[in-house]
């Protein structure tokens, strides 16, 4: 169950992270895996999916040391999607919290 919950919400998390600033792949993977136990390899397919959907965009940054890096940035439609999903998620999780805490009896 935990795996599936993560799978469904990971896209939203990526969008939320990119809303706060552009990131390159390795950096993004580490931000996520610091908080969630994920199979890191699956984040790249997810990035591609978001890119194909137009929620994010990528650009190459040249570096003096080593090869160029691919950075991801959020698009306007991605920002919009994040806002919607985050709102829905917060409502959802508040409702679940309520149920788990048994607050529905007092309501």
């Amino acid at each position: 169950m935990q795996t599936q919950l993560k799978r469904g919400t990971l896209e939203m998390c990526v969008l939320a992270i990119l809303c706060r600033g552009d990131r390159y792949g390795y950096e993004l993977v580490n931000i996520i895996s610091d908080c969630l136990h994920v199979t890191e390899g699956t984040i790249y397919p997810l990035m591609k999916r978001l890119k194909d959907a137009g929620s994010i965009d990528s650009y190459i940054v040249e570096s003096q040391e080593g090869p160029p890096r691919k950075y991801y940035r959020i698009t306007e439609s991605g920002r919009q999607a994040e806002k919607e999903q985050e709102g829905e998620w917060r409502e959802f999780s508040a409702a679940i919290d309520k149920l788990l805490d048994g607050e529905e009896r007092t309501a």
Binding site: G25, Y26, E40, G41, Y44, G66, P67, K70
Partner: peptide
């Protein structure tokens, strides 16, 4: 993508 991940 994966090559860069390794390099980083």
């Amino acid at each position: 993508d994966f090559e860069q991940h390794f390099d980083d």
